[in-house]
Design a protein around this nucleic acid. Structure first.
Length: 106
DNA sequence: TTACTGACTCGGA
DNA sequence: ATCCGAGCCAGTA
């Protein structure tokens, strides 16, 4: 298993309930700042019983960018987040200032 | 091994 | 503020 993949999973796993992070943030924290798209690829490949809170990862603008055949997952993601207290505004967008997870990595 | 893909981002118009 | 084009690079075939 690649290190990048492991890092992504490890990082996402420690995002607190009720908070969200961007793909780019995860990529940076995983050692490859320009691999934001790959983060999506890793999450997409996760088995449903992985226990990884993939739904807490959104794009930098705070909305869900899943498309195509993943529309169903997109709806699921929204519901899971709202269940955790994350609020979507009229444009289906999350206020990253309020719900963005600031990591303490220093 | 090479080729293609895209659950992203950034910078310029 | 909004839209658009192109780089990015780990996965997958």
């Amino acid at each position: 298993m690649s290190e990048f993949k492991e890092n992504v999973i490890a990082y996402v796993a420690r995002v607190p309930k009720g908070k969200v992070v961007s793909y780019g943030q995860v990529a940076t924290a995983s050692g490859s700042p320009r691999a934001a798209r790959q983060v999506g690829g890793v999450l997409r490949a996760l088995p449903s019983d992985s226990g990884v809170p993939w739904w807490r990862v959104v794009n930098r603008d705070g909305y869900l960018s899943i498309k195509g055949n993943w529309e169903a997952s997109k709806e699921l993601q929204k519901q899971l987040l709202e269940k955790e207290g994350v609020v979507f505004d009229d444009n289906f967008t999350i206020d990253m200032k309020r719900f963005g997870f600031r990591d303490g990595l220093k």
